[in-house]
Design a binder for these strands. Sequence first.
DNA 1: CCGACTTTGTGCACCGGTTCACAAAGGGAT
DNA 2: ATCCCTTTGTGAACCGGTGCACAAAGTCGG
Lengths: 225, 225
Amino acid sequence: MKSPSQPRDRGIPEATVARLPLYLRALHGMAERGVATVSSEDLAVAAGVNSAKLRKDLSHLGSYGTRGVGYDVEYLVYQISRELGLTQDWAVAIVGVGNLGRALANYGGFVSRGFRIAAVVDADPEVVGDTIAGLNVEHIDDLEAVIKRRGVSIVVLATPAAAAQEVCDRVVTAGVTSILNFAPVVLSVPDGVDVRKVDLSIELQILAFHEQRKAGGPLMAVDSQ
Amino acid sequence: MKSPSQPRDRGIPEATVARLPLYLRALHGMAERGVATVSSEDLAVAAGVNSAKLRKDLSHLGSYGTRGVGYDVEYLVYQISRELGLTQDWAVAIVGVGNLGRALANYGGFVSRGFRIAAVVDADPEVVGDTIAGLNVEHIDDLEAVIKRRGVSIVVLATPAAAAQEVCDRVVTAGVTSILNFAPVVLSVPDGVDVRKVDLSIELQILAFHEQRKAGGPLMAVDSQ
DNA sequence: CCGACTTTGTGCACCGGTTCACAAAGGGAT
DNA sequence: ATCCCTTTGTGAACCGGTGCACAAAGTCGG
């Protein structure tokens, strides 16, 4: 392998960032199966995307491929991991220990690489003190202290909708700038804070829309993964 | 209220469809608070979008606003519901009763409007026969029969990654064309089948990427909801 | 009935992202 | 060393979506 060119473009398109984890997952699978080298075509199929798009995505990280051969799997895993920041350890706090919060805390693949659940917090005195996924459930009153003490930098909101904005405001004030929100509300946050939303109900409604179309007219809307 | 123009454009942009549920949620809140009429500006704020975008979105359903006044809340709720297909009842099956499947089955807001959990299925003899969210857990062997008997048209996959593709193939063969996939795999499906993916691990990785950026350089990536 | 005011609906320019298609680069065989 | 084959990296056209800015349409007070 020759001297790798630096990742030059510091501004990676958002759409590319969203696909890097997909490539990473496919690459991990290949690495485990002992594959040493992969072409953009094969990796694209494994990740469910177009090969030109994959190449353009990877080109944003630098020139890590070899023409006529493809990409070195191990090396690419490392480069993508580094780019995504997975070579460091992220402390995640889950706020809200309902059914969903509990499921998230116990969900293994979630913690897999780079992420560690560092705290679980709830408001209900009934569950505070319980042990979930090996962690003691702490009281919401101590939210700021817990965040500081455990070095939490990413917060997962799994509270009821009514509580989400208030909790959000508090974690932002406590210095958190990355939030994964499962509550069905539009959070308002200051600039510089990233919020990503996962909304089951919205996904279902989008499916229903297309399902209705299929049943109704001869116009067929199609897959989109 | 004057005679409403027909929804003319049968091809609603995907980006618009993805936002309609957001508008609908905001409108429901307003209806409950007794608001009769809302301007595009106010609704846009409530839904967290730009008002011009909101107007353009709504214009795809037809001309339901009144210039100088705004939109009739109740009427708009009805129009959007109808467009999304929420005026009918959708039978949903959840396959996989791990932590996540259980959480989904019990998640109230999920079933709220238009959707009804009609079946819960798993492969583990340990949980088959249990009652979850008032439903008897059925065996995966009976998957096709259950889908047919209960009229299931949307399937939620909450199985381990290794099982997802096989279950997917079976439900597609059984006639299901709308799938919400929580398993961390790229499903391959025939044309005409809609798959939507929810992937916690990917969301976290995207957050980590931006978080790393913030910590690292002076370039700040921002919010995106 | 009129004029001032509000708010919608949309034409248009712009932008990020996708896809095609191909030149450039490298590997391997002879 | 040369030629052929494979595969990358990218220029350029294209496409869907966004946001501005404004004319058209309607309300309401006088």
